[in-house]
């Protein structure tokens, strides 16, 4: 079994005069959470679409879980859960019906629908039509769909889109536990630095379609700290800390966890 879950070699995607992905060599190791960080338009989504076989590379190779991605490849997708860009579902169908379609097409057992609804805390919305869901719950539905067939690899494009702070923390913890407890590989893209910093074991920074840096989170954190010490003003550091404080306070007030450093619960806080 290869120790890379996703591997690209000299991957290129051109749209007429625009090179969206340029000679990308990428290795996502099995069992790790790989953060694919880049600005809007850096080539993250194009890379993910190629990995999933939704668009064809102009040149280069992609291998996923040991299988080369080429037209007609389907077998490997039984081991991949994914969320690409926007969370979408059949709007006229309920959450349960949407997931049942996924279950049938991935030959998953009937209980998988209820399990994924429970995992993403969608019980209260199970019989609501997808078109009537909030953006955050649509995102949960898309994640439930991605997880329904217990994939070995999760390919997630901006998984925190539309989620409130509590939802972001919840999904972060869910992904961490999937990686730690079940050995699921997570290849996730984001342009939100905090998301990647919280979750990823290794981080690749893509810019203008090229991978310009790749390090472990600790290495990147060390570089960032050294850089921040020089570049940040005291006000900026204060602002960053305030953001963290606000997140923790918000979670406490909205009932997800006790206020740190006190015995009071969210409701009491």
């Amino acid at each position: 079994m290869p120790d890379t879950a996703v591997s690209t070699r000299a991957l290129v995607k051109r749209y007429r005069d625009v090179t969206a992905v340029d000679s990308l060599d990428l290795d996502v190791r099995r069992g790790e959470i790989y953060g694919f960080l880049g600005r809007n338009g850096a080539g993250k989504t194009t890379t993910i679409r190629m990995v999933l076989g939704l668009i064809r590379p102009s040149s280069g190779d992609i291998a996923v879980l040991g299988r080369r991605i080429r037209p007609g490849e389907t077998k490997v997708f039984s081991k991949i859960g994914f969320l690409v860009e926007t969370a979408t579902a059949y709007p006229n169908l309920t959450v349960r019906e949407n997931l049942d379609i996924q279950r049938r097409l991935t030959s998953s057992p009937p209980r998988a629908v209820a399990d994924s609804i429970g995992l993403l805390r969608l019980d209260a919305y199970a019989d609501r039509r997808a078109g009537q869901l909030s953006l955050g719950n649509k995102q949960r539905l898309a994640l439930a769909r991605a997880l329904l067939h217990s994939p070995e690899l999760l390919v997630l494009d901006e998984p925190a889109n539309g989620l409130d702070p509590a939802g972001i923390v919840e999904i972060r913890e869910l992904l961490r536990s999937l990686a730690d407890e079940r050995g699921v590989t997570v290849f996730m893209s984001s342009h939100i630095l905090a998301e990647i910093a919280h979750l990823a074991d290794r981080i690749g920074i893509v810019h203008d379609g090229r991978l310009i840096e790749e390090s472990s989170r600790d290495e990147l954190a060390a570089k960032a700290r050294a850089f921040a010490t020089e570049a940040y003003t005291p006000e900026e550091r204060e602002q960053a800390l305030l953001t963290l404080d606000l997140e923790r306070y918000f979670l406490a007030r909205t009932g997800d966890r006790p206020v740190s450093g006190s015995s009071s619960t969210a409701g009491d806080a």
Binding site: L52, G53, F77, F82, T88, A89, Y90, Q102, S107
Partner: peptide, 15 residues
């Protein structure tokens, strides 16, 4: 239109 094509085309089912 509903952007569900991408969900349909990356499944373990021949297109």
């Amino acid at each position: 239109r509903d952007a569900t094509a991408k969900n349909m085309l990356a499944l373990p089912v021949a297109r």
